[in-house]
Amino acid sequence: MAAADCLELEDMSDDVLIEARGIHAYYGASHVLHGVDLHLRRGETIGLMGRNGMGKTTLLRSMLGLLPPASGSVQVRGRGMTGAAPHRIARAGVAYVPEGRGIFPNLSVRENLLMAARAGHDGRDDWTLDRALDTFPRLRERLAHGGQQLSGGEQQMLTIARALLTNPDVLILDEATEGLAPLVAQEIWRILQRIRESGISSIIVDKNFSAVSTIADRNVILVKGQIVFQGGSEALRARPQLLQAWLGV
């Protein structure tokens, strides 16, 4: 191996927050991911897109330790985390906002937030309950309500706020605005933009191509468990016929 390659690798491991390499994953007998590589750099926002059933959620779950891959590796800040328990990956600074939100319906809004709150892996505690409530004022009014009493938009705000209270480096959002009214979805995108500006890196899965490509530094498109495109939004917008084929937009 050339010396220059080594240097570049070292350089990357310093900069890359989470990385999946050669991931193959199965759900029962069906082979969902066929050797996927994905890495997220510090300060970067990735838009992960693809039609339903192409493996987006499976890829995220593999990276989060919720579905250990059949082969391939996962690293968080250069440390091997393949097959690690989900709580270890979370403690390394990776926060998850799942599809369907994952609110605890039997806990109040305040409890949903407090049970997760902790300092980040490096001791950082920028995100406090107060700051989260300033970012999501609607949650402040709903603190005493049960998790199941919230509207879809409020639930999504609660899940994002809860993830931020773990003071993560990386925020992974699956179906960030699915099922939300357009105005509420716009509010969520504004909030994601602010989170991006605060320096947290994210991987965002969403069906709204124009919104995702506006916020993302890099777009990744999955088709049948393989990455068919990686690159900037301009390059993608310039190829409408491929977008139609890959995403149906």
């Binding site: 989060l64 919720l66 328990a85 989900p86 709580h87 979370a90 403690r91 926060a95 998850y96 799942p98 994952g102 605890f104 319906p105 039997n106 806990l107 409890e111 949903n112 407090l114 049970m115 997760a116 902790r118 809860r162 993830a163 773990t166």
Partner: peptide, 19 residues
């Protein structure tokens, strides 16, 4: 709170960093 959360959604509780 963690115990009650774990009773309702084990996976989500883990993904919030709880063993």
């Amino acid at each position: 709170m963690m115990v009650r959360a774990g009773a309702s959604n084990r996976e989500m509780t883990q993904s919030l960093g709880i063993d």
